[in-house]
Amino acid sequence: MRTGRWQPWLFVGPALIIIAFFLVYPTVMTIVRSFFGRGQELFGPNVQFVGLANWKYVFTSPTMLLALRNNAFWVVMFTFFTVTFGVLLAVLLDRVRYERIIKSIVFVPAAISYVGASIIWKFVYAYRAEGLPQIGLLNAIVVALGGKPVGWLIERPWINNICLIVVGIWIWTGFCMVIFSAAYKNIPRALLEAARIDGATEWQVFRKVTLPLLGPTIAVVATTMVVQVLKVFDIVFVMTNGAYGTEVIANRMYKEMFNFFNYGRASAIAVVLLFLIVPFMVSNLRRFTQQGVTR
């Protein structure tokens, strides 16, 4: 599109100014602060230069290594299921007349606050001693099938992490569904009809036409989900606060920042999040470039 030299800046200007102030400037400060010690101030007489001490902690302490491992597990599980469910719902719901009702049901978790969600899942994972009436849905099922009640959020290393990830998937699938649905409804129907007339089965239409056309949106939503995972905090914070081997990076950061008043260490952890997003940004950059070429 032809534009004047200054016109693009008029369009991106407001966003860039706001972002520079609210995100870039604090990020620079965070990077600088990661070389300084404990305390709750940005700088001042109580804050001392500590060199790489925070960085050593971030990459060597067992807690952080555990958090990194858990975040990797979250990235794989959470991203895969939210995106898969989101795409399937978007495509399948387009074919039924009660689409709006189902969409609303899947959307509800997103509308309920984390505090509400944590109570909901308390009544799924609750544990009661053997022989007493179970008030947790999962344990009620386990006991009804003749099993022994399980401490779902206690059982390390995988069961409790999976239980937390399930909560995340439950909350975020609605988001993926809505975005994919908006993209799917923009796909020209004629393309799908043409494939059907050519004798393609529904599965083939999905694989060969729908999925490639949804490709860019899938990449965007998947990247968004990865970012959400790296920042995942509320679910872990309210349900286990990282106990029993469920620690994640962002929860660690919050604790160091607001419970332990170790601004320096919290800063180093926050910068790690920036590093971790780089590979995903690089893959996005490639896609962005390809798009530019085809125009």
Partner: peptide, 24 residues
Amino acid sequence: GRRALFMLVVALMVVPLQMTFIPI
């Protein structure tokens, strides 16, 4: 700088907002 700026904007998604309070 279109590409670089766009990447920057998107990468900043990952900034934990808790870290922005004290500078701002």
